[in-house]
């Protein structure tokens, strides 16, 4: 349903990803694994149209997506970047309202819905996003992406720098979204345990290329592969 084909690109002269192809079926959660710096984030940015494209294409539901990032979002691609990047001097409600308004959804309804979906945010509705903790920001970033009403959600390292207790919450949210709303999810991670909780299938990335496609269970049983993969 969501497909990245032969993605090749990077920043200015430096090519970072090469010929990477990924496929996510409807209603599926897929993990993208790999060490730091292998190109996971770049691949996501490629999918969002945020970097220089050399070759390849991105399609959703069989249709190639337009080049402009904002139009990709309106076509149904949701994005939660690594490091969250909530709008720090917008309140929690405004963060959600901005995303909803941009996609011409009713912003009041979107805010009410989000606060209901994420009770964690409710007491913070009028707090500036920059004042939230890392975990709260992560939840807000997800709520904001959901306000665009996506068909596919790209989640880049949602557990990075987050307290363990909230990591479990985030895993719960991902599952709920997937099961109850039928949103397909591609999640880039280094935290294998987390991946096991949410996904069944995974792509393995190294040096800008997709080097393997495995089931997570099989991966976890293969200690050697794990060590190589994460460089532990």
């Amino acid at each position: 349903m969501f497909e990245i084909t032969n993605a090749t690109g990077g920043y200015e002269k430096t090519r970072i990803i090469e010929d990477a192809s990924i496929k996510v079926d409807k209603g599926e959660v897929v993990a993208l694994l790999g060490r730091n710096g292998v190109g996971k984030t770049t691949l996501f940015k490629y999918a969002m149209g945020l970097i220089d494209r050399e070759n390849g294409s991105v399609s959703l539901g069989g249709k190639e997506l337009p080049a402009a990032t904002s139009r990709r979002v309106r076509a149904g691609l949701g994005y939660v970047p690594q490091g969250r990047f909530v709008f720090p001097r917008l309140t929690v409600s405004e963060n959600i309202a901005a995303a909803a308004a941009a996609n011409r959804h009713d912003r009041k309804k979107a805010v009410a819905q989000a606060l209901e979906d994420f009770p964690l945010l409710k007491p913070k509705a009028n707090t500036l996003a920059g004042k939230l903790s890392g975990g709260q920001q992560q939840v807000l970033a997800m709520a904001r992406a959901l306000a665009t009403e996506p068909e596919v959600l790209l989640l880049d390292e949602p557990t990075e720098g987050i307290q363990p207790s909230i990591i479990d919450d985030i895993a719960g949210i991902i599952k709920t979204l997937n099961v109850e709303r039928g949103i397909s999810i591609l999640v880039a991670e280094q935290d294998l345990e987390f991946c096991r909780a949410v996904a069944k299938r995974a792509y393995v990335m190294d040096r800008g290329q997709i080097v393997d496609e495995v089931s997570i269970e099989a991966l976890l049983e293969n200690e050697e592969l794990v060590q190589r993969l994460l460089g532990v």
């Binding site: 990591i167 935290d191 345990e193």
Partner: peptide, 14 residues
């Protein structure tokens, strides 16, 4: 425990 924090296993980390 070091492997745990890398793998994200939570028992020891907590």
């Amino acid at each position: 425990r070091v492997l745990d924090i890398y793998l994200g296993r939570r028992e020891h980390v907590r």
